[in-house]
Design a protein around this nucleic acid. Structure first.
Lengths: 216, 216
DNA sequence: TTATTTTTTTAGATTAGTCTAAATTTTTTA
DNA sequence: TAAAAAATTTAGACTAATCTAAAAAAATAA
């Protein structure tokens, strides 16, 4: 199997290349809190193992086998997060770091049984889709609140920022996964957004609107 | 915190010194499948951190802080074993290696919540006592079947050998934790033992009798 | 109680992953 | 398109954990 460091690199490359299909050395370094030179060393090693496509100076992408490993780690991460929240009553802002550790427990049988035990959940506590045991995602089209027009409504279904402080802020404003909201106004001056949730109106900044995802 | 290797050494030293209060370099090496020279290196490091008492050539014992760490790892190991058997329906002979990995998940809060989730179990699937969150064991007096006299009866409550092959053998003979048994005969020639379990008589070797523990 | 065997430690090397500093390549900008 | 800036790689070093082989200490046996 792969080392912990290798798994973290693969996961980071996966997340970074979801958008443009490619991750740069510096992006990886900053996402893993390490130095570019360390990244270069590891990229050579992963390329050697045929887990990434690497041409010096050109950034990297995952090969099918690299992607398979990355997705399996993401599956573990999200299932453990679900477990921690649903079974052990952690709050959604407390589980990320714990799951970072738990995602490296290697057994696939364990994770498949955990999946079954919890009734095959489709989304983790932050709304991120949980891939099934074949690595397939149930992708739903989500939009940031900042990209929605006035008078549209939808269900809060995900976040882009997973930091505790953001999640705690959402808790305080009662903007949590599953809430139905309606965009009632967009302030042109600073792109902040006014949303209706239940009986209240909440005013959120552009940044928050950008990191809050809804299903229309 | 401590590295994975350090934790494994502390756990090994704990188990080895339960009997004679002391563990030798070679004992540790063989229990961790490593070489004596590697052990010496690590012992110096652990002594440096004041987790063990180490005098060259004289073997080692845990300091109170070393013991605290060892017990916390054992607590995690046994609680995860319980989880795997009771919640994920693994068999008792399948969980040891998985728990070896899971015992290194660092969060104490996680393990305390897991403990609560499962209703504070007192024994793991092999009958070993689970220390509470303060590191206290519920020690029960157990005897190997080989040390019991004819006509005595008791409840199977533990095993000394945790190997899959031994546990599978016990399953086949229906000699599992919680079974009431009675020793009906001891064969002088080879010290094998005949036990009554339910409606059946089972004949077990001296070695099996040695590794099977009962509460009288 | 000396010689032999066993156990343990030391010395020196290796691997994985990381680092800093310097060199190189690519990108940007003027 | 040449110079400057940014990104990336290389070179060389470090740490943790391990190894083999040799040396030293302790235990055992003659």
């Amino acid at each position: 199997m792969n080392t912990l460091a290798e798994e973290n690199y693969l996961k980071s490359i996966y997340h970074l290349s979801v958008n443009d299909g490619n991750a740069s050395t510096n992006q990886i370094a900053s996402s893993l809190n390490t130095k570019a030179s360390s990244v270069t060393d590891m990229l050579k090693k992963l390329a050697e193992k045929a887990l990434i496509n690497y041409t010096p100076y050109q950034g990297v992408s995952l090969t099918p086998s690299g992607e398979k490993i990355a997705i399996s780690i993401i599956r573990k991460h999200r299932l453990w997060e679900y477990f921690l929240v649903e079974k052990l009553n952690f709050k959604w802002d407390q589980v990320h770091d714990l799951a970072e550790e738990m995602e490296h427990i290697s057994s696939e049988e364990l994770i498949d049984r955990l999946d079954k035990f919890m009734g095959y959940p489709k989304h983790d506590p932050h709304g991120d889709p949980i891939p099934d045991c074949n690595g397939r995602f149930n992708t739903h089209e989500l939009k940031p609140v900042s990209a929605v027009t006035v008078n549209q409504s939808g269900i809060i279904s995900g976040v882009r920022d997973h930091s505790s402080s953001f999640l705690q802020y959402l808790d305080k404003k009662q903007l949590t996964i599953g809430c139905k909201i309606m965009i009632t106004d967009i302030i042109e001056y600073d792109h902040s957004v006014v949303v209706q949730t239940g009986n209240k109106e909440v005013h959120i900044s552009r940044e928050v609107a950008n990191n809050l995802l809804i299903a229309l």
